[in-house]
Amino acid sequence: MLDTQAAAPRTVSAQAPPEHHVFRSRRSGVPRLRTYLPELWARREFVYELARCTLRAQNYLNAFGQLWLVLNPLLMGAVYYVLVDILSNGKHSGNYFSVLLAGLFLYTFFSSILSQSAGSIIGSSRLILNSRLPRLVLPITQIVIAFMRFMPCMIVFLAVHTLQGLPWGLDVFYALPAFIEVTLFGAGLGFICATLQVYFRDFSNFLPYVTRIWLFLSPVLWELQVQLAKHDLKSHVIALNPLSPMIGAWGDALVYNIAPPAAWLAEGAGWAVAAFVCGVLVFVRREREFSVRL
């Protein structure tokens, strides 16, 4: 499938060169990216429309749905704030709520990419059995949906940030590369999750445990510098966590308005690109088989 030698992206005019498809018996293997990627690009409006329609079907586009999108992250922040407050006997900095929200929102974005991508293929079995879409549009749509849900969180964060009287400045833009790194890293892992879910139908039952433990190992409930300075076994494990440099840089830039160490951004970029490339290759190698496996 998708081993199509289509001459051009579909244009509907009489002069358009005729499409020519050859379907051969290669079940796996990377399809010709020169034809696959344009087909994927041609579906960009489909991705956006499907994301918007899905959110609308879940009532997220009306007033109460929007309110819930703002309330939900606040409540989640409150839950973790109470937890950390009790465990640390109330010893944390005054701006802790801001620190917590920044990390928590980004991490929730990351983990929802994984969980939603995992269900994207199985949940669209009818679409897969009836159309010849590049399958990659399905997890990508879920990433777009996760992003659309993440946006209201940032409004909440900006409000809290302002209320706590934290500084604003140009260094806040360092949060952007950190965010892109998390998105690419999450997308790569999300593609792998989507593939795994086709072969192991209970994979999504295991996933929440993984993301929960990963949350505690990431600089969300605590700050990266503080833990790295301890130089014990735990700090070494934390240093190995690919999300550490990304979320650490994000927090520095967004909360304290300082430029994060360049090494963090570079390390995060390395992980992000590697995960993304691996994820795409794993997915497109296997996607021909999805319609047989559903």
Partner: peptide, 22 residues
Amino acid sequence: RAIAGILPPSSGEIVVNGRIST
């Protein structure tokens, strides 16, 4: 489904000339 390019053939080849609608 094989002609539509949805199911990959296990062997053999299918050639379709033109835009496919299913």
